[in-house]
Amino acid sequence: MELILAILIGVLFAAGTYLLLRRSIVKLVMGIVLISYATNLILFNASGLVQNGLAFLNKDGSYDKMTDPLPQALILTAIVIGFGLTAFLLALKYKFFKITGTDDLDQLKETDAS
């Protein structure tokens, strides 16, 4: 199970990087979204996957089969933050398009030149 997830993470990272290198800003945003999903999955995979395991102890403190609850808490935070960042990116893209009328990353050179 971890192996499948690991391969999926790899594919997501590769796809995200490919999209980042395209010229369109929409694809740049999509690339960042994919990479942030892949990162969230890394967090999810961090403690190993336990099937049918609960994330809490029995009343007497014992447990039969347990998953680590911490990565799940972390991933929840990371998803929320990622959502906020994506919303900001899309707003930025919209504003950028409205003011410059272009979606082409190659048109962004002017702040690089002196």
């Binding site: 990479i35 990162t39 967090l43 961090a46 930025l92 950028f96 410059t100 002017e110 702040t111």
Partner: peptide
């Protein structure tokens, strides 16, 4: 806005690297 696209992209990527590091 032109500067911001670069700034925002690189900074988000940096925190994603950081987050992946935390997971591992």
């Amino acid at each position: 806005l032109t500067g911001a696209v670069k700034y925002v992209t690189m900074n988000i990527l940096s925190s994603l690297f950081f987050l992946a590091g935390i997971g591992l």
